[in-house]
Write a protein that binds this DNA or RNA. Structure first.
Lengths: 221, 221
DNA sequence: CAAGTTCAGTGAACGGTGTTTACGAAGTTG
DNA sequence: CAACTTCGTAAACACCGTTCACTGAACTTG
């Protein structure tokens, strides 16, 4: 139903589907916007489930192939559910919610958990990927990056893995952020068809990008 | 009026603004969707004008600072007009149109022209940026990259600058494509607030990204 | 058991939407 | 003048989100 776009998800259509009338929905949601917020949460849970099921056959530990699997799973999901992607990841309404009060979680919440969890666990495992290659990011960013560092550490420790502060270098964190920028950029461009020319088969281009992101980080497939 | 989002741009509101009634709009547009398509074209023209006016004080030639100016101008425009950005650059409806028949032009049409024009002219000027650094992209991409190469050559020659085929290496073209991925990725993430943590001031992060994109291409600020 | 209260759901209504249709009042052209 | 195109209107239709008064069943309480 959301397959036909955000505007197609109407209260009356939902009610018809559930077998009740439109006003009855107001017993459960404050408004259409509120309903869409919860819909986003459900979508995020579906995405998380799909990513985890793509991760399952690879074993529990964080290996390099898990990073690639999460990225490819994200792309696959986005292409298979463009409207959902658009709703959760490309909406100006800050519809992502969960709880606006408890602060931190953004980026589709559930997806952020999976992606950042795998990535940061991998970074922790590879201590100092091939030497000390990651250059220091500009000082202006240090404050923000340190905040992000805390988020990552909290994410990983929540899985029971103990972390010492200094094993996540700011340079690597900046790389991780750039990885998200490029992953998101490619997927969004593909979903919205905004590449500057018609790409016949974007998949090898995606794989090439993944390599150029992760191989310099010491994460080789 | 589009500032309040795509859904706020209603036929009756437009008609009220123009001083006519809603059905009269059907004399000029086939449907609301058609009107939105033309609106996208207008938005693209505004963007092009803004970018060109940002380029003007830098002189006519393609210098390195022009690349940075276009990228910063794009970000500035997107942040100042999030709804317009969303409409043109993050919409699943292929609302970009112009003419669906004549094939090629995508990516907000006008913006593509400005960005690709400046970038490719610069690449042509710097022949072989610092040696032969750009590695060959995977062979699977060569066909698509060559098509993109033709688009670039056509863009540049349309400005009167003659080009020989071989001065635009495929590696550089791939870099240019990755530059678009990262530029778009950062701007969209910022517009939609989908960075994985709260970034206090994204501008230095944007500048750091521009550097890490262009400095390896030999385009230093 | 009877009375009261809560809860889920309904139908009618209001103002707004995109769109179609029939119609009219100008201006143009023979 | 008559025919015709152009631009616009009013009315209507179906659908939308939302509100409100209301019903009927379930549950609580005396």
């Amino acid at each position: 139903m959301v397959n036909h776009g955000r505007e197609a998800v109407t209260l009356r259509a939902i009610a018809r589907e559930v077998g009740i009338t439109a006003p009855a929905l107001y017993r459960y949601y404050d408004s259409r916007e509120d309903l869409l917020r919860h819909l986003c949460d459900d979508i995020c849970q579906d995405l998380e489930a799909e990513l985890n099921s793509a991760l399952e056959p690879l074993g529990g530990d964080a290996g390099t192939e898990q990073v690639y699997a999460v990225c490819r799973g994200f792309r696959r999901w986005a292409l298979a559910h463009p409207q959902e992607f658009s709703l959760v990841f490309a909406s100006t309404e800050n519809v992502i919610g969960r709880r606006d009060t408890d602060g931190e979680p953004r980026v589709g919440d559930q997806f952020g958990k999976v992606f950042l969890d795998v990535a940061s666990r991998l970074i922790l495992k590879h201590e100092h990927p091939h030497g000390l290659a990651a250059p220091e990011p500009p000082e202006v960013l240090h404050a923000d990056l340190r905040a992000f560092q805390q988020v990552l550490i909290k994410t990983v420790t929540a899985r029971g893995v103990p972390v010492d502060e200094e094993s996540l270098h700011l340079g690597e964190i900046f790389h991780l952020l750039q990885a998200w920028v490029r992953l998101y950029g490619h997927v969004a461009l593909e979903v919205f068809g905004r590449f500057p020319f018609a790409v016949s088969d974007p998949e090898p281009m995606f794989d090439a990008m993944l390599g150029s992101i992760f191989i310099p980080m010491g994460i080789e497939e």
